[in-house]
Amino acid sequence: MHLDALSWSVDGRVIVDGVDVTPPTGALTGLLGPNGAGKSSLLRLVAGVLHGAGAVHLDGTDLLTLRRRDRARLLALVEQDGAAPEGLTVAETVLLGRTPHGSPLAGMSTADRERAAQALTTAGVSALRDRALTTLSGGERQRVHLARALAQDPRVLLLDEPTNHLDVRAQLDTLAVVRDLTADGVTVIAALHDLNLAAASCDHVVLLHHGRVAAAGPVAQVLHPDVLEPVYGVRCTVLEHPGTGRPVLVFDRG
């Protein structure tokens, strides 16, 4: 997968500025950067929800030139604060992930229902299946939207702050679900706020600053004081996790 010179501006203000990166296939790529760096906008551009300049290549096709439905069969997006419309149950919401599969005029098939039930189980929310979406906690809701994206059967999954609102345990559970997906060959790009969470779970990171790529590469290379300090404006110390050997970051205002 290759994001080819993606740009987007609104009212003459450049929000995403020539982003050109290659997230590895079947891996978890963390999209990092301070508030307003353009993470959400970049994900929406890749999903074809925002229309800017550039291309998104997957196996030689530009996803942005595909018809919407065809693109939605290859690529799913989970927004930061997924909606909770009244009157939808968890099971009905997850079933909506099957929308791009099958005819838009036909109803949902048995196969669609089975795939949705599977996604509920994979995301660990099948116990909630008959609950109304409006009665869920923020974290539960986010897991339901993740399940909806899984039911979409995408090859590329875009997650905008999937661990927002979640307590530590739920954050780790969610990222474990995502890691399992990458093991099945799904390419995941997740905007993350928590640098330590990214350090502990990502294979690859892209660091955005003012809409541009400040750094991109393996975790150890990007989550480095020399790279992070100018972007976040903090002093940073990198330690090594005694168990996993992965980097642990400690910050002070300097």
Partner: peptide, 13 residues
Amino acid sequence: ALGDTAAAALGIA
């Protein structure tokens, strides 16, 4: 019903 962004990402024009 899920919102414009979610609907667009599900392939709806």
